[in-house]
Design a protein around this nucleic acid. Structure first.
Lengths: 238, 238
DNA sequence: ACAGCGAAGATTGAATACAATCTCTGCTAA
DNA sequence: TTAGCAGAGATTGTATTCAATCTTCGCTGT
């Protein structure tokens, strides 16, 4: 695809931080839905896969658990998280609270180079949408989330960036579980609208569009499922 | 003090989670400023103190590092974080973005029992302010942050609650480093105003008061210091 | 046939052992 | 005197070992 995609999993960081590297591998796998919610992550197995001891794996899994991508149960192991509908609602409520303001803040600080980067990203998203095949779909899902992170980096607040990293990753899980449509095509046009507002320096409009965008993503979910039904109803028994 | 303070460090949780317990001890120590920014946290020493192996300590320190309360440098150890002025600005920018909306959200969901709990907390803050001595000061600092967490719990969003836990704790560090005044007396009246707005169901006003409150806290900081001065200027050499 | 129990195997939790890196002290030499 | 270096000690990073818990499978008895 475009030049912007030349990004090896870990690039500029020292070859140390092995736990961090494992963490990012899992992050990516979860975001791109190569790992289904609920998948068991055995310490020995992961350790064998990356050729490290369980010590390092545990460290990575703990980080993932703290960002909500992994649920770890004592003496039972770690699993890819399966957010409940309530959790899903909270994730999007948090995004509604944070992202519009962040978009507005980005609007105040945006520079031509940022606009260029954002447009590059939009083109990358568009070309992925045109492609066929599951690999392109995965890349598209990921790119869609990365747009929001790109915006966060324009806003220039590392703390919010980290928080949004967590929220977008967890959103991926939520969409995998409760998404209704193709779940990916939904956002691209709206992303473009936001960039336009940014370029025009219209913070108010950028915030409004971002809010709508998040609403649209959430509207595509079906959060009624598995709401803790009384089981009799869940099974459609007469 | 009041009844609301009967809260042993770890209460209802199972006696397991020893790393978690250590983490909370440190959280509290840092929030109450019994541990100064920059303090070295040696794994062996902490392990000896809590009578656990370094394995458990490392786990606790990793959690603290992820929430930004501890900075850990490879092969050098872990230290109580010393937020830079820039980091401080970002922390408060994040709070300005999140807390007003959260206060409004709390306004929509607040129930009489919540108001009662909030008022109980206000009384507790007031009585701490009346007391003398460093121990009361520490408790006051902590209570001041807990007000914001109480509000977050009324809003009913666990994810935001966690985020705010991190932000208030890091704010404590920032105030310890850059606080100008007594740093504690500042907030109480404003807390009360927010509760009044909540009780009146005036979300708009609650949000506005919260924003002002955060501005006031930040205004009490002196973030000009140690901005990476050229050292010659920092030392006042002629 | 099936519920209940128990031991074997597997998996995680924690402590210890070993390796790698850093820090600090004291020496040497310019 | 001081810069530079070498080595001992201390500290962290990782692997390995041991203990605790859970899961599974098969057995027994009703």
């Amino acid at each position: 695809m475009t030049i912007a995609d030349r990004k090896p999993v870990h690039n500029d960081r020292a070859p140390e931080d092995r736990a961090q590297i494992i963490r990012e591998h899992f992050r990516n796998a979860i975001i791109e839905r190569r790992l289904a919610p609920g998948t068991k992550l055995s310490e020995s197995e992961v350790g064998g896969l990356f050729d490290v001891s369980r010590t390092v794996v545990r460290s990575a899994l703990q980080m993932l658990a703290l960002e909500g991508l992994v649920r770890s149960e004592r003496n039972r192991g770690a699993f890819v998280a399966t957010p409940s509908p309530e959790e899903a609602r909270q994730i999007f409520a948090a995004r509604r609270l944070v992202e519009p303001g962040m978009a507005a803040s980005a609007c105040d600080r945006v520079e031509p180079a940022d606009i260029a980067a954002l447009r590059r990203h939009l083109r990358s998203e568009a070309s992925l949408m045109a492609e066929r095949g599951p690999s392109a779909r995965r890349a598209e899902i990921r790119a869609s989330g990365e747009f929001h992170l790109l915006l966060a980096s324009v806003a220039g607040n590392d703390i919010l960036y980290r928080f949004l990293e967590e929220l977008t990753a967890r959103s991926s899980l939520v969409i995998a579980l409760y998404g209704r449509s193709g779940a990916s095509s939904c956002g691209h046009d709206e992303h473009e609208g936001i960039v336009v507002a940014l370029e025009a320096g219209d913070a108010r409009r950028a915030a409004k569009l971002m809010l709508q965008h998040i609403d649209h993503i959430e509207a595509d979910l079906d959060l009624r499922l598995t709401e803790g039904l009384p089981l009799s109803e869940a099974l459609h028994l007469p």
